[in-house]
Design a protein around this nucleic acid. Sequence first.
DNA 1: CGATATGTTGTGAG
DNA 2: CCTCACAACATATC
Length: 281
Amino acid sequence: MPELPEVETVKKGLNELVKGCQIRRVEVLYSKMIDNVTADTFKRALTNKKILRIDRRGKYLLFRFNGQITMVSHLRMEGKYDVETEGAEPGKHTHVIFHLTDGRELRYNDSRKFGRMYLIHNGEEHTLSGLGTLGPEPTSDDLTFSYMKKIMNKSRGKIKPFLLNQSHIAGLGNIYTDEVLWMSKIHPEQQTNLISDDKIKLLRKNIIKEIKEAIKGHGTTVFSYKNAFGESGSFQNHLHVYHRDGQPCERCGTLIKKIRVAQRGTHFCPQCQKVVKVDND
DNA sequence: CGATATGTTGTGAG
DNA sequence: CCTCACAACATATC
């Protein structure tokens, strides 16, 4: 289940494998995968186009083509790109195949069929509902303390769903959200606007650090995530709370609890992470 | 067989 | 407008 670091890893892999390649033909085997245009329009628009490079914004991949065309791709839960030599055994979950002129195929595989692709003209990113409202990237340049303070002070909801909201900060998913809240000693159900400036600073620092380190480790993967090279992520060894319910907290030894917050499995240490009613530390 | 898991959008209630 | 819950998407796994 790719979050931002996994998508970044996929982006880098694709740039090494298919940047500069030309598409001879596109096959769409599951047309609901293509969201904002018909499968026919999609196929026609990309045929004979050259992949100039692949960019990333939040969890979105942006394939840049000549002719000012961008294919936007969101992997959602299980989407993967694989590069195969032509004629290789087609996977059971292969939904889109980009036949390249060099005899290889770029395939989109997705066992859940939740992923989506969109076709836009460059500069029209704002017309897509998710991409258009994305918050800043979780880097020290983009995610400033003053921005965090401003939006957090306006929010009366719980911090966990706040962080999962991609229009606040781009790229945090369920795993990293639990991790950064544990690192910052903030309860996932803490009311957002009651978090102190010191805690906001700490949270900001941890988000930036965690994402950066996860990218270095090729993305987490609790289960079985593989990048375009077929490498598993190595970051799973680094998880402190996610999927560790019943195990002792690394800081205080209290058993990690799992609860449901905003309909999502949520892991935290009941000793280190307390709800505070007033802004006081 | 039923519960659960994950990301996101859309819709409707309050 | 904000916040929340829930359905929907489709499938694998416990």
